[in-house]
Design a protein around this nucleic acid. Structure first.
Lengths: 169, 169
DNA sequence: TATTGTTATACTCTATAACTATA
DNA sequence: TATAGTTATAGAGTATAACAATA
């Protein structure tokens, strides 16, 4: 990210005013990362959803489908950890994907408790279309913040996630 | 944020692996801001919640209470815009705050359709405690990412929010 | 005993739409 | 007619807990 000059970080910020709001004071909120993370997530998600249009896929489903495409045969417990969701949530979401014919599951012969998920031909096709739209969406975000800031943003977000998760334990 | 050297942004990233996960490939997801925004929001929120402990206040309520403390007499429509929630959601959340005795509402004499919200003495006290805990939480996040990156993160998030909101219209 | 996945269930947060009252 | 706020309701998206099958 581009550095703001010393001491000018705040004043250099775009005037959020929460929306384009008159003169609402944010107080504590103005410095509260979680507040902006939530708003930014919501806006980004909505932008992606609009881009998807008819290929609508729930946010959780998109993450799962990507993980399955990238890691054929991944088990549900692995998906659960990777997506940061409970295994019961994964079960629910996977059933929807399976009902739509986008993925298939088969039992693992070496551990018959586990199910390996695979993308189907149809799922691959849908994923291809979604991937193209995801790229458009990603490019738009990158245009907004700039390539350097985008990479830095990802890096900082990952640092936050990893550190906070480690702290939980 | 500290710049990574040219071309090393990715490799310089902390190895997220989604958690500390073996070797799950993220594919598209690895470059997908929305994915990390969601995970980061969830982790940050959970950290804040744990810090709050008994003074638990819902995330939406915290934002509303802050806005009321900072903007005494703010109306519900203004709160709605500021918090990025529908007015019906604001109504529901305000009633909880009112039931808990943290805020009061009074009709505006000049426009009897509107209600002005004010924090009560009790609400002020609760807010004081929460503010102290919010500071602890914020300081922790700042320690994790560093002061420069924190300011840059806020700046980039605000840019994203503002730009995407403008685009919607 | 521990783990994988399923199910039933419930919770949290939110929005939509129709409404009342005021303007 | 338009706006502020309320209400009833529904919907995402998720987790908890108890469970069956397997290890």
């Amino acid at each position: 990210m581009e550095r703001s000059g010393p001491g000018v970080a705040d004043t250099a910020s775009p005037s959020l005013r929460v929306v384009e709001n008159e003169a609402i004071k944010l107080g504590l909120l103005d410095d509260f990362i979680g507040y902006y993370l939530r708003l930014a997530y919501e806006e980004a998600f909505q932008d992606f959803t609009q881009e998807l249009g008819a290929d609508s896929l729930k946010p959780g489903s998109f993450a799962l489908l990507s993980l399955i495409v990238e890691n054929p045969g991944i088990t549900q417990t692995e998906l659960s950890r990777a997506a940061g969701r409970d295994k019961s949530s994964v079960t629910t979401a996977l059933r929807l994907l399976e009902d739509d014919g986008l993925i298939e599951r088969r039992r693992l012969p070496d551990d018959r408790r586990s199910y390996a998920s695979e993308v189907t031909a149809k799922g691959q096709a849908v994923y291809g279309r979604i991937a193209a739209k995801a790229k458009i969406h990603s490019d738009r975000l990158e245009t907004i913040v700039g390539a350097d800031d985008k990479n830095a943003l990802l890096r900082v977000l990952k640092t936050l996630i990893v550190s906070l998760r480690q702290r939980e334990r």
